[in-house]
Amino acid sequence: METMLFELALTCYFAATIVCLLELFKGSKATSRIMVGLVIAGFALHTANIAARYVISGHMPTASLHEATSFFSWCIVLLFFFLEYRYRIGLLGSFIMPVVFILMLTSSILPRKIENLSPLLQSSWLFIHTAFAFIGDAAFAMAFGVGIMYLIQEHYVKSKHLGGLFKKLPSLQILDEMNYRLITIGFPFLSLAIISGSLWAESSLGTFWRWDPKEVWSLITWFIYALVLHVRLTQGWRGKRAAILSIIGFSAVLFTFFGVNLLLKGYHSFK
């Protein structure tokens, strides 16, 4: 049942991604309505899938890489709805839905067995810690999408060839502001995730920090985004440089998320 929900959600996201990519070349009001409809349907199915796993396992469904990746995508879509509703940025979907789809596809090929939580992790901290981490990561994913949009649009303006997506993409100012705002959302959540994680470690393991690879890489990610904000406020590194930094930052997020789990070992690793 919950597997079926996942497959259907994946299918909806896939269809939405196709429509989004079509929108790059030939967009109309109709296609963006179809896209939003598909994302809503996918999100509803996805939510049902996550809820079902929660009911079956009795804990926050972030206990396997499959679950975590799926929850990560879920957070991105949630944030996407918010931005789409609030700001209506042209083509945002075309740059973020592929990310969602790739994450979901990755999630779908990972083992889907519902794991029993190791006694070490059985705590309400699990919910707090992972929720903070994924909301922060979702904001960074979004900043990554917006950063790419900025670089494309900037390229059009600088090269003085105003064809292609120039018309459809929003203005440089909007994209830059959005990139900044998303990082200012993501950064405190990442900080909270690290703080809640160390508090949890203290309560269950007795130490705040154990230099687990995930911890190290989270810290690296944290420093990258701290740098992004710092140079923006002090040196005026906005626009292109901020966009590039947000792309680098997101690669650190992805490495922290996948790389650490797949390549390095530690108590953050899934079975």
Binding site: Q153, P170, S171, L172, Q173, I174
Partner: peptide, 20 residues
């Protein structure tokens, strides 16, 4: 009728893509 076909309109159009 979408694209500016005079220099001054083209400048305004560009300004809007830089500053909103």
């Amino acid at each position: 009728a979408e694209n500016a076909v005079s220099i001054s309109f083209a400048a305004v159009e560009l300004a809007k893509k830089i500053f909103t």
